[in-house]
Computed example of a mutant assay.
Amino acid sequence: MVSVSVREFDRAWRKHVAAYEKLKADDGKEVTSLSRYTLLFYAAECAIKAKLLRNYRVQSYDKLPPEAQIGHKINRGLDLLRLAVPHVPKAKARDQSETTVEHHQLHEAWRYGKILAEGEPEAIEALEKLIEKLECG
Results as ranks from 00 to 15, higher is better:
residue 109 A to D: 05
residue 46 C to Q: 05
residue 102 E to C: 00
residue 35 S to D: 08
residue 79 D to E: 15
residue 23 L to H: 07
residue 19 A to H: 05
residue 93 A to N: 06
residue 16 H to F: 15
residue 16 H to Y: 15
residue 93 A to R: 12
residue 47 A to V: 06
residue 67 E to V: 08
residue 54 R to Q: 14
residue 111 R to G: 04
residue 95 D to G: 15
residue 27 D to C: 05
residue 84 A to V: 08
residue 99 T to A: 10
residue 23 L to C: 06
residue 73 K to Y: 10
residue 106 L to Y: 03
residue 83 L to G: 02
residue 40 L to T: 01
residue 97 S to W: 08
residue 84 A to T: 09
residue 67 E to H: 15
residue 105 Q to V: 00
residue 49 K to D: 04
residue 71 G to N: 08
residue 106 L to E: 03
residue 66 P to A: 09
residue 83 L to F: 12
residue 19 A to R: 08
residue 52 L to I: 09
residue 15 K to W: 03
residue 54 R to F: 03
residue 29 K to L: 11
residue 71 G to T: 03
residue 46 C to W: 02
residue 96 Q to G: 15
residue 41 F to S: 02
residue 93 A to L: 08
residue 55 N to C: 06
residue 55 N to Q: 13
residue 106 L to P: 00
residue 15 K to N: 14
residue 25 A to T: 07
residue 45 E to K: 05
residue 94 R to S: 14
residue 41 F to K: 05
residue 100 T to F: 04
residue 76 R to S: 09
residue 35 S to G: 11
residue 72 H to W: 06
residue 79 D to N: 13
residue 71 G to L: 01
residue 51 K to T: 13
residue 46 C to R: 03
residue 39 L to S: 07
residue 88 V to F: 00
residue 15 K to D: 14
residue 34 L to N: 10
residue 69 Q to N: 06
residue 84 A to N: 15
residue 12 A to E: 12
residue 110 W to Y: 15
residue 70 I to G: 05
residue 32 T to K: 10
residue 97 S to G: 09
residue 54 R to S: 11
residue 22 K to F: 06
residue 37 Y to S: 10
residue 12 A to H: 06
